[in-house]
Simulated assay, not measured.
Amino acid sequence: MRWPDRDTRPAVVAPGPLLGVDPDADFPQTEIQLTPGLMLVFFTDGLVERPGVDLDDSFNRLAHHLAQADERDLDLLIDDLLSKAGTAGQRTDDVAVLVLHDGS
């Protein structure tokens, strides 16, 4: 989550089962108060996981780049996250990224 003041940190949510493993699984729900200027970035583990790199370091790198990113063009923002915060050239997993932003 990136707040309007660019403070960027993970949302605290209850973990759930892996998608697609159990068709009858119950998934926890989390409510997040949406405010003008808030940006939500959803991504799969392929964006941040890299063999030999601490996952916390990868999340911190992603948060740093997201805090600095220009939100005027979300396609460019995603490209930037894929190239700088991710593991471009070293990916061993697929990546999906979804960015929601209220530019108010």
Rank of each mutant, 00 (worst) to 15 (best):
A67G: 12
G103W: 02
G37L: 10
H64C: 08
P4C: 02
L19D: 01
D26R: 15
D80Y: 14
A25T: 11
E71V: 14
A96V: 12
T35R: 15
D73V: 09
V21T: 13
P23A: 12
V53G: 01
E31I: 06
V99N: 00
M39Y: 02
R6Q: 04
D73G: 06
R61D: 08
I32F: 13
V95N: 00
D93P: 00
G16S: 06
W3R: 15
G46S: 06
D26T: 15
A67R: 12
T35Q: 14
K84V: 00
V97H: 01
V12L: 12
G89D: 00
T87G: 06
M39G: 06
G46H: 08
F27A: 05
R72S: 15
D22L: 13
V53K: 13
P10R: 13
P51A: 12
G89M: 08
D56P: 00
F42W: 04
G89R: 05
S58H: 08
Q90A: 13
T8E: 07
D5P: 03
A85Q: 07
V13W: 03
L40D: 02
S83I: 09
G46T: 09
A85N: 09
D102R: 13
F42A: 14
L100P: 00
A69P: 04
A11I: 15
S58D: 08
A69Q: 03
V13T: 14
G46Q: 09
G52V: 09
Q33C: 09
G16C: 07
A63N: 08
I78S: 03
G16I: 10
T92I: 06
D22S: 13
T35H: 08
L55R: 09
S104P: 11
I78N: 02
A63V: 04
E31C: 01
L81A: 09
P36Y: 05
A67T: 11
I78K: 03
L77Q: 06
T92P: 00
G46I: 08
H101G: 00
S104H: 11
F42K: 01
D102L: 10
D24R: 12
